[in-house]
Write a protein that binds this DNA or RNA. Sequence first.
DNA 1: CTGAAAGCGCTTACAG
DNA 2: CTGAAAGCGCTTACAG
Lengths: 338, 338
Amino acid sequence: MKSKPTSFDIAHMAGVSQSTVSRALSNSPLVNAETREKVQRIANELNYKVDKNASSLRTQRSKTIALLLFEDPSSDDSQINPFFISMLGSITKACSTAGYDLLVSFQNLQDDWHAEYEDSNKADGIILLGYGDYLDYQSKLEQLEKQETHFVRWGAHDPNHPGISVGCHNYQGGYLVTEHLIKRGRKRFAFIGVADSGAPEFMARFQGMENALIQHNLIDQFIGQFDAIFTLEAGEEATEMLLEEGTLPDAIVCASDLIAIGVQRAMQAKGLICPNDIAVVGFDNIPVSEFTNPPLTTVKQDTQKAGKVLVDKLLRLIEGETASDMLLPTELVIRKSS
Amino acid sequence: MKSKPTSFDIAHMAGVSQSTVSRALSNSPLVNAETREKVQRIANELNYKVDKNASSLRTQRSKTIALLLFEDPSSDDSQINPFFISMLGSITKACSTAGYDLLVSFQNLQDDWHAEYEDSNKADGIILLGYGDYLDYQSKLEQLEKQETHFVRWGAHDPNHPGISVGCHNYQGGYLVTEHLIKRGRKRFAFIGVADSGAPEFMARFQGMENALIQHNLIDQFIGQFDAIFTLEAGEEATEMLLEEGTLPDAIVCASDLIAIGVQRAMQAKGLICPNDIAVVGFDNIPVSEFTNPPLTTVKQDTQKAGKVLVDKLLRLIEGETASDMLLPTELVIRKSS
DNA sequence: CTGAAAGCGCTTACAG
DNA sequence: CTGAAAGCGCTTACAG
């Protein structure tokens, strides 16, 4: 059969009206059980599927969510941040459970992506995952809000930021991992990662560490915070600067696993042993962290839960309900680097 | 403005008919340049976007491609095979360049996914990426073909397999990496990875190795092929069996990087040094392979090109043109594990 | 170059 | 419980 059957074809074969076919296939209670079964059987035989475009046009609901992964234009296309990959997996699953399709798009920050998806009725709402400087995309988030686009984003909780955010408890994670290092006798800390309002998640991790040091009277011995964006290379460079500073730390807390791997590499190049000379800890628990040399102690973000929560919140917004920010707990993963 | 503007709203404001608005926005040559500009300006001001559902319904083209990533049900949801992640990146990019949206779905082999996307007009065609036993999904591919669904898949080239496939030259890759090891003086080879018709890609890699050994008169010293599916754990277990076999190999060729990482782990547990005791090589060049201990010599598949070719072939099929299978060349990546 | 009109395939109020 | 009819927002042949 060349052309696809329509609901009229099914109706004809079942000897009922097209309206009844539509009702039967959507399991409407308004249709006789026997009629429904007959219609469904015939639809199955013909391999009939409801036309998504017609259905969406009529109901003004696409039952589709758009996932926008945006990133610094600097980064390589094929190298998606591994942390977001895990998120992608759990978001896909959550969408499918909710009966939604998922449209995926990678965007650069320059791109004119705002709201395109919902404005054209391709999607009922948008999930934003991104890294890069928060300040660069704040204005786009504000525009989304102004256009009343339904969206949620992964990121830091801040009442001043537009939209609903879901994120992990970065402050707690920074605190936990620092406390762990202190218990193991580390005293001279350094932090690698940008810690300003352009990177609110990194900043919260930094503050968690800082507070743990204060509580344990170690803040006087704090060696310093060294800027690094989210990449391995940035971690490597920052470490080179740190190691030229004079006093060596005995623990380096990194804002992410990728940074921490860069730190380990830079140390190796200088002949420093991890953890004997310096303990190194990361954040994210990306799959690679288990295989570095030595395996990385890190803070795990629960991506399974995160994806589910993001989708749930977004669906609430789509339904016209309210939703609020959410912080997910973090979990310490202790390996040999500490 | 609460409700979205339609082409009638634009027409009203521009003082033209709705047909003219539609033409102007699709850059039809049938419209006066001045009129077109005026319409486009107004559309921009109102942030008007053509309704995707209405447009797709009318043209019977969704300008959307569905990417189905299917995998063995055994594997963990959040752990997508890293190789396919790179593919996902380049496919997304290629779709966006062609003006297509990308619908992403992860499926288990049991799922009843066949053709659902094209039958409901959600997508104009399907790209299939998968791992697991080929024989398990052959029947589904056959059904896709029977339903005249447009699809391409990543995988082994085989004239008997349904549909168009794009894959890398697995045989060549296996040959190249083996030749490299032979040049470095290795003589006693083992292969880890299933090598049967359920895993045609692995089998081609195995045959490439086998042929290199034959050509260099080393086949007599071949220790054996040990089954392992595509996971790290499988590589670990297979190595344990291999190491109990008696004669130790001095080189292990693995069917994938994940397997090779498992091999390295199992060797480490037994106190064997890589590459001094045994050289280990992988296949895929996944991002992790650079960070293993020691970094892995492997065969790179050009995922950038692969994604582009998959999308191009699929678009040809959608346009009603013909397309044929394609094998992409592989490239040796030499690191410290050999 | 422009406009009036048909129709893509549904869902759902309305009437019975 | 069922059917006839309207209409979602476009694109495009048709007529001018």
